[in-house]
Design a protein around this nucleic acid. Structure first.
Lengths: 340, 340
DNA sequence: GTGAAAGCGCTAACAA
DNA sequence: TTGTTAGCGCTTTCAC
């Protein structure tokens, strides 16, 4: 081949321009199809770009243009199907709306330093917006940037001004499940949940469960434990042996752990004890007959992206009042909880 | 406050340098802690950066430096737990090794155009390396860049020269499962799989199953169907009614679909028919007693990242022969497949 | 319709 | 130890 061959990723727009016999300015315009240029010129430029294997250097382009076309997504560890699905739906929705997403993740068990690091990586790219789908980052850490770049929290509630949300209405979830259990006639119930600083969602659910149950006249044993699904399972079993007829878990993972323990202990579900969970997105949950609550992942994802797009296109960002959008899931009756 | 206040993300290194009374070059060095500078000078610069809320513009930095510190990850839709877990493990491993990952995803059902678009977005960022965890992108599309940037495929096998892999040994997986089924005494078996162009992994597994079964003297009905888990389920049931005693599914999703259909048809598992799957990463699979094969996600992720790091640090990239690393999972006997 | 020129924010020799 | 000077690759007025 001719001597104008360069390794694909080192072809610059100057190379393309030169090969097409035009200036860089013209090449830029033709390549993005904006501004004025002769159709035949564009054709030639496009052909040369193709031939040379030109890939625009995004960093240079966005630096020069002074703006970014991508939205940053901070995601919690995706090994949890609830986050995996949220991730997937956010991605789909962003794609549908023509937004480019670039994602960084932080392990679920990371310390604050990692979270901040990830945040800075995204901000360093000067993303046009930020979708935060991890509880690990605090409002205080986000706040300084809220007036620079639109920030939408997806999944978790947020009270800080200027940070928008599309979130699960976890108190309602807890209430719905508790009402169901009450309606089945249970009056001695164990509530198993992660502590507030371990999982805000679980905490909110569990608190609502407890309140609803007590309001319904039931006696409640609240177990507020660590992050591991097996934490507190033994205590829950003890409570069952002591007469509790239902175990309400603040997440499906805990529910599975409880059911394993129950099976190993020779207790039957729902014969000896009813068990409920929350999340409802495990594939195969139906085969297990899990009584749970399906969280509205799709609605949250759609609202988060839609909000982001609106903020992005809004001429005056500060003119928009902080958006708060709670979504309620649907109860999945299942067969692991039955009437007394 | 003083008049040197600018919105956080608009503070440049010049602002920091000016505030600290030094040149930009000194600020650069002090900020990254490389090169020579007086400790006290650095202290001052760091303090000013902190005070002004300076966040380095990564695009500008990497453009100027001529290199990137991040590795791009192309991921398939994470709503499938197998990909979600792979994603999570790749991320963990990268973090452990000090590599920064930036991810773009493509829906599982996307056309080629989207995949190429995603690839270009990553290449446009001039990532230092590329980890590809989606089957949707072909070797031909990757090849032009393989000598520019190290490329490692994670999960799926690859034959193209210059593209490294850490992949599941799916033929072995099929063989292991089929041997298990044979050892249980089954001789009339249905194999349910996605077609080759739908899922290479499923195809490889199914092909191996078929061969192993036939070699073992069994008669095989191979159903090569579409991507939807319910595809081919009816036909599989027909085959069961016609005398087949085992249904081998090329993925857990199909296995679940088959079990639902069997349940609805009033057939018992494994009483009337044995069922096997493949993947083994569904939470709760143990409670269902699924007979399946756990794919070695962790090993693949670790090997992929380790290979990437090696390629990145290797002075002479082309000196490294193409790396191929197949990993075999472990059989999970379960209770959905039993002896005849 | 096209090109020349001035940067975007930062880094990296090379001087000083 | 610090500052000066060139750019990195691209976009974008503003003339022509």
């Amino acid at each position: 081949m001719s001597s104008d061959e360069r390794p694909a990723l080192r072809v610059t727009i100057s190379d393309v321009a030169a090969a097409a016999g035009v200036s860089r300015a013209t090449a830029t315009r033709a390549l993005k199809g904006e501004g004025r240029f002769a159709p035949e010129t564009q054709e030639r430029i496009l052909a040369e770009a193709e031939r040379l294997g030109y890939v625009r250097n995004t960093m240079a382009a966005e630096l020069a243009a002074g703006r970014t076309g991508t939205v940053g997504l901070m995601l919690r560890d995706a090994s949890n199907p609830a986050y995996g699905l949220l991730f997937s739906r956010l991605q789909d929705e962003a794609h549908r709306r023509g937004l480019d997403l670039v994602t960084v993740t932080i392990g679920a068990d990371e310390q604050g330093a990692e979270q901040v690091n990830a945040l800075h990586r995204l901000l360093g790219m000067r993303v046009a917006g930020l979708i935060v789908a991890t509880g690990g980052i605090t409002a205080a850490q986000l706040a300084p940037f809220a007036d620079q770049v639109p920030i939408v929290r997806a999944g978790r509630v947020e009270t800080a001004e200027g940070i928008h949300t599309a979130h699960y209405d976890d108190p309602s979830h807890g209430e719905l499940l508790a009402s169901h259990v009450l309606s089945l006639g249970h009056s001695r119930v164990v509530v198993l949940s992660g502590a507030e600083d371990v999982s805000l969602a679980e905490h909110l659910r569990a608190t609502a469960m407890e309140q609803t149950l007590r309001a319904g006249g039931a006696s409640v044993t609240l177990l507020s434990v660590g992050a591991a699904p097996t934490d507190g399972v033994d205590e829950a079993l003890d409570a069952v042996r002591a007469g509790a007829t239902a175990v309400m878990c603040a997440s499906d993972y805990r529910q599975l752990a409880v059911m394993r323990a129950l099976r190993d202990a020779g207790l039957s579900v729902p014969g000896d004890v009813s068990v409920t969970g929350c999340d409802g997105i495990l594939p195969g949950a139906d085969l297990l007959g899990l009584t749970t609550l399906r969280i509205p992942v799709e609605a949250v994802a759609a609202a988060a992206v839609e909000t982001m797009q609106r903020l992005l296109s809004g001429s005056d960002a500060d003119a928009v009042p902080t958006v708060r959008q709670p979504f309620v899931g649907t109860l999945v009756p299942g067969t692991t909880a039955a009437a007394l």
